[in-house]
Design a protein around this nucleic acid. Sequence first.
DNA 1: ACACAATGGTACC
DNA 2: TGGTACCCCTTGTG
Length: 544
Amino acid sequence: MSFTKVVIERDTDSEEESSSGDENDQVDDYPSEEEDDDDQVLENEASTTTSRKTKTKPITISLKKVCKVCKRSGHEAGFKGATYIDCPMKPCFLCKMPGHTTISCPHRATTEYGVIPAPRKGTHNSLEYVFARQLRPHIPAIKPTVVIPDQVNCAVIRYHSRRVTCLEFHPTNNSLLLSGDKKGQLGVWDFKRVHEKTVYGNIHGCILNNLKFNPTNDGTVYGASSDGTISCTDLETGMSMGLINLNPNGWQGPSSWRMLYGLDINSQRGNLIAADNFGSLYMVDMRSNTTTGDSVLIHKKGSKVTCLHCHPHQPDILLSCGNDHFARIWDMRKLEAGSSIYDLSHNRVVNSAYFSPQSGSKILTTSQDNRLRVWDSIFGNLDSPSREIVHSHDFNRHLTPFRAEWDPKDPSECLIVVGRYISENYNGAALHPIDFIDISTGQLVAAVMDPNITTISPVNKLHPRDDVLASGSSRSIFIWRPKEKFESELLGDEKRIILCGKGEKKRRQSDDESDDATYRSKGKSSKTKKPILKSSSHGRQRKC
DNA sequence: ACACAATGGTACC
DNA sequence: TGGTACCCCTTGTG
């Protein structure tokens, strides 16, 4: 391996450089195996004592190529084409164990690697008895055939002006999708009539963390935001009402600014619940739209609560999780600090925790230790997870946190969906698939991807009734359907990809006939390439 | 083909 | 407890 050597003259009149930064001009052949001075990137060869009379010896800087992760030379981390090479000095980026890198990690080849059978339940208490008696009959013994929505059916490219943070399907209108973004904007998109899309921009000031439909009026939606407010918005008009404002005095610095996360509804009590970044839970009466009771500390004081979920059959049973590395189960009839029924311990921050959608007997958690965990209250023991699946969904401050979600249609409560962080080299393109995993075995059922989607898709939602997946990737939203449906329904209709934002403007300059574009799903794309877009020749104009 | 900015979690003092 | 340095397979823009 060779490294460029730059020689800088010291104290000369001309200030001439002995060498420019040109790669191959003046090259010293360094041995490829490094000596002991691994860390020494800058070598000062200037003489300090002898030659000061006439002229000072030059300083020689050798610009050795160093690893951007550990700053040592001899290896380099980063993309080589569409394959990422890990820094060998770091623990495996996937399973976090030292001694190997992601490329040779056994979990990379098979997601079920290391998944151990669930320990059988050994203890009983009243809660478990209730779960077992009431919910066990709901669980069918036979697994249905899974249908994977694996083809991009339609999309809105650069729909939001910031990255997508949450998605929610309408409870009755099958083709209506709501989306929230980092800026606090709310998107309403009818993906059957792809041009019918709106973005409401004046509801929240920053990150819209969660959306939840009003169970008594599906024309309105609640939103919890990092601006510290809960909103109630009319989807038709975009008119919004604030229910809670935790920062009535405005910005007083980060130590006092409250942000709201995790939004759910206790339908029995008619309560809306949300929690903040300091560990407290808030309740709002949905009839009077006023706060009920005091806030309750449900996670470590000062730590963020990341997600809330009410049990599907027993709304008084609440699941929460947060930055204190715990997911906790609560009885809302007796809710006070420290009164949790169970504390599910994790190694890192827990991004999300959800009861299984049909019976509520299982809990799925996504933790930043790159593990998905399933906790089974009937067949397992809540003292430890019944399944632990190594999966790449690391934290990155620039990405919306990953949340594994259940398939709400799967009666056997086995199928989950979660976006993948690390990329795979697919035919020369670095793509980040969306994974479907069977949590009963840990097996990867499907990894869906599209050569045009080169960005990570941390936000994924499966449709409550149809075989449809919605995914949020960067600022864009994609609708996936099974291949068969895709082919039958799209016959003769190619205009399903809508371009927004800057791309739209640029394209209009060259082709001002329409505001949409078809999208070539064949063809390669590289990691650095933008999605391949081909403008179409007709269509209506509509604002994004 | 670069540089740069945005900015959460954590370990450590 | 608060401050801060460091982590880092991002993404869009200029």
